[in-house]
Design a protein around this nucleic acid. Structure first.
Lengths: 230, 230, 230, 230
DNA sequence: AATGAATGAGTCTTCATTCAT
DNA sequence: GATGAATGAAGACTCATTCAT
């Protein structure tokens, strides 16, 4: 019965090849940069010969595109699901989203993708569009909805949502970049504990967004934008 | 009459060459990445021939080092001077520091350096050490002192200074990285106004750091770090 | 039928490549000098592309080393075997050794090696050591033993063996050098027949070494070395 | 009176320049080889700027030609004068010629010329002709006349003069080549004392050429060339 | 499907030579 | 005459890609 479903090793490996190559490529592109990574190295790390790489990906550039798409697909959907089902405070939701994101992305090899994106986006305009549509915009929208939810419920102040979303997201991205640049240089500088940093980050920012009674905080950010504070 | 004071063109150019080459290199390294930039392109953009580059810099790698050193030397010293002489509130000081930083670095070609650093730090261990000592540590210390000043004066809560410094700095760095990656892809996505973003960022974070009377915020972050919240 | 034993062309060529490249390199290094030979020329003469050379030899310098090692290894061993087994007069042994040497080295492309060595030894100190240990010293020792044999048997006079060895060897080396410098310039000067020259050379030198009865030659060379002749 | 003949320093140096450059070039070409010597090095060693070299020599190749011509002109004439005026035995004349040659050439920087010639002759056909006409042929003729003189006087055997000349000359040349190749590698192998070697060399060869009473040596070399000795 | 030997375009770097000063 | 900044042709070497096996 299960003999039918049993896949021969040969075939299993065949099907697994692209993924093994993508994993190897991700590691190397993150470690050494795209240009500095030789295609032969990718093949070697995936345990295949140079030529085999080209059976699955027509060029090194296409390999890069596949690596990025592969690792970013479905990145946002999960967050959206969490946010849609959540019933607690917005503060708690943000803490949950960030922790989840760290577990699923920041703390995995996929975190290196952001480094690649920063570096190579300029060289792949069509990929830039993909990234904006598939990652940036959905991500932005997710956090925008969460912030709006908090404002609507009276938990958070009226703020410039677009900018505030980036105040929330940017440090998370920098955490990933740091991990793969300075953080990869063993023994340099003090080490930061990501979960602890994330906690502090979310705590500080959410506090800065809470509705407060004192006059200083009552003034909406949007109104303040135009003139100087007295 | 002015023949006596006239400096021969050759001479004048010779003195200007290194700077012209450094400027060209900065632009190109930021635009295309270090590895993807051909040394001849740098020379061409500086208006000289291939070989001329090598009269001033022994190799492409040395050129990169010079570019980074050139643009980051004295970056921090200025901020320290400002902070040392400032007499207003810590909130105002942070706003001033961030604005100054944006004018001097974020809004100049030097902002691209951070992109290079993210990418190349792993490939130049000795340069990584230089960068940590000359830029990262002084920068951290500067903001640490400012936060400590705010805490000592009673303006700010007791927080984990190390982590909070990064909550302040990371979005600034991401702003630079964004500017030279996605931001450089013309017509992609909505544009963010950096000064406005910086204002929102500092405002939100500083609010999150202010001492408050309500119970919610009374629990010091430092105390919370050890155990789990109930 | 023979399909089973047939070796794929690729395979066959792969095994022959290093030797083909070494042969081509020897020819060209001798013809034009090491520095003046482009690595691409070597590859072309071996019938492969530029890059192929580097699959087998990491650099042009390593190629040179391999060329010299390849062609001189076992050079001396053969002479030592001959000398060890010989039973005739020392005169006849020297004639035999020189003729053998000419057939195996002087009259083959390997003769050009000495030209390369003269030129490049100064630029490769570690190779110089190799050459001294593997070629010069064993060669010296071989001829020293042969001369000593002649002296012990009473066939030859007491002479300074070290210097006399060079009186024997130097013209042989010059013959090779001449062949690849002046001798290579077609139509220049009269041509010397190497076997005939070798015969004359050995004949003259051996005669000069024979023990003689006449007073003129009775004064031993060794005794004369110390003081001036009257 | 002598003010007229006094040459200003400026002009004296100007006239001396070519010689200084030639000396520097000789040293460097011998040390490092022609190709490996940069024209700027030659200028620097002569104490002038790069461009100055080209005021005197149109190219590096012409400089090489000048170096060789300069150092070989008149090389032979002196020997011919000595030989023409000498009245002693041919043995003594050969000793004198070789000693003189060593003092004037072998023991001076000019000895390096032979290394250059061996290496570069193939690359300069027209120079090869010059060298043959100006150096090789007169040198050959000189030694041929000396040997003939010895034969005519009954001092030396009848030998193949052409070949015997080379038996005499080749070790002298090798001495020079050795001095600038292996001999230049400090600390490698035992060192040979040139004057002593020359003495041994001439002694052995002349002894081998002397007329002897035993039948073996009575047979003229020229006659022996055709058939085998009985 | 997989291999890896072979390729050759492309890059960094050197250096003989020129020429404005 | 002298200089040395500038040039650009040339060469060693790399590596993405191909294709015979």
């Amino acid at each position: 019965m299960n003999t039918k479903t049993a896949v021969p090793i040969r075939q299993r490996r065949k099907e697994a090849r692209p993924q093994e190559l993508l994993d190897a490529a991700l590691e190397l592109f993150v470690e050494k940069g795209f240009a500095a990574t030789r295609s032969e190295e990718v093949a070697a790390r995936a345990g295949v010969a140079k030529g085999t790489l080209y059976l699955y990906f027509p060029s090194k550039e296409d390999l890069l595109k596949a690596v990025v798409r592969e690792n970013l697909a479905g990145l946002i959907a999960e967050g959206a699901t969490i946010a849609g089902a959540f019933e607690g405070s917005t503060h708690e939701l943000l803490v949950l989203l960030m922790k989840t994101w760290w577990e699923r992305v920041g703390n995995t090899p996929a975190s290196g993708i952001f480094k690649i994106i920063i570096t190579e986006m300029g060289n792949f305009p069509d990929f830039a569009r993909f990234y904006v549509q598939e990652v940036i915009e959905p991500g932005r929208d997710l956090f925008s909805r969460v912030l709006q939810r908090g404002i609507d419920s009276g938990e958070l102040r009226q703020v410039n949502i677009f900018e505030t979303v980036h105040v929330l997201i940017f440090p998370m991205l920098m955490l990933c970049l740091h991990k793969h640049s300075l953080g990869a240089c063993a023994g340099i500088g003090p080490i930061m504990d990501p979960p602890s940093f994330i906690e502090t980050h979310v705590d500080v920012v959410v506090r800065g967004l809470l509705v407060r009674e004192d006059a200083q905080a009552a003034e909406p950010a949007a109104a303040r934008k135009g003139g100087k504070r007295g």
